[in-house]
Design a protein around this nucleic acid. Sequence first.
DNA 1: GTACAACTTGAAGTTGACTTCAAGTCAAGG
DNA 2: CCTTGACTTGAAGTCAACTTCAAGTTGTAC
Lengths: 132, 132
Amino acid sequence: MDIGEVARRSGFRASALRYYEREGLIRSLGRKGLRRQYAPEVVERLALIALGRTAGLTLEEIRGMLTGGWRPRVDRGLLAARAEALDAQIRRMTALRDGLRHAAACRAPDHLECPTFRRLLGIAVARRGGAG
Amino acid sequence: MDIGEVARRSGFRASALRYYEREGLIRSLGRKGLRRQYAPEVVERLALIALGRTAGLTLEEIRGMLTGGWRPRVDRGLLAARAEALDAQIRRMTALRDGLRHAAACRAPDHLECPTFRRLLGIAVARRGGAG
DNA sequence: GTACAACTTGAAGTTGACTTCAAGTCAAGG
DNA sequence: CCTTGACTTGAAGTCAACTTCAAGTTGTAC
C-alpha cells in the first residue's frame, strides 16, 4: 500500500506516518520507486497507536508497549508496569470526573468550600496552622 | 505569601506560577514592592490545577472549570460536558489498561493475533476484503 | 509520451506549557 | 547604609508531536 492508502485507512496524515516511521513506531516494507510501501497490518498497529494517543500516552511510551511483529520479545514486567501507571492515572481522572459531576450539581458558592467536592478530589489542605 | 512560598507549598515552580498568573489561572493579591503576594487559598487552587494536569487536561480546559472565588457563575452544563469527555477518555484508558494486563499474561506471539487482546482494545479491522 | 496527482526530502513553523537567561529591583537583616 | 538573596521583566529557548513548505521525482492514466 502507498502511504496515502494507509493514511485513509488509519485516519493519520501521511506526514504523521512518515514521522512515526522515522521514530520507529511503524515500518514500511520497502519502496516502489521512491514511494514507501506498507503491509496491511500496519493499519492495526496504527489503531493501537491511536488508542494509546487518545489515552494520553506519549509516543515513547507507546513504542515501549508495541512489540508486534518485528521485536522478538515482550517485556511482561514492563507491560504490567505500564498497566499500573495507567491505572493510577485512571483513578486520578475518575476522581476529577466525579468532582466535576458533583460541581455541576452542587450549589455551593465556591467548590473549594464544598466538603463533598474536596473529599472527591482529595484536596486535604490544612485551613490554618498546619504543621506540615 | 511570596511566590517562593507558594512554590514550596504547591510544588510548582515560581516560573510556572507567573505563567499561570499571566494565563489567568491564578491571581495575586497585589504587590509588596515588586513582589507578588498571594493568598493562602491559591495553594488549593493549584492543587486542583495539578490534579487537572495529571488527569491530562489542558490549561485552557482547567481554566474553564475553575470558577472559585473570582468568577461569579459556574456553567453547570460545561462542567457536566467536561465530566463526560473525561469519562470517555477514562473508558479508552481502561480498555488500554486491560489490554496491557492481558498482554503481560498472554503467550500469543503477537498481541495483534490474540483475540482476547483485540477484543479488549476494540480493534475491529477486517483481515481481508473489507468493503469499507 | 506526456500530464499530473501522489509521492519524496530536509528544513522550518506551530502549539502548549513551561524554563532559562540577562539585566535589573528591592525588602530585610546586620 | 550596605549586602544579599529573592524577587522582577521580556525575550528567547525547549520539548513533543506533528504540520507545512519548497523543490524535486515518479507511477500511472490517458
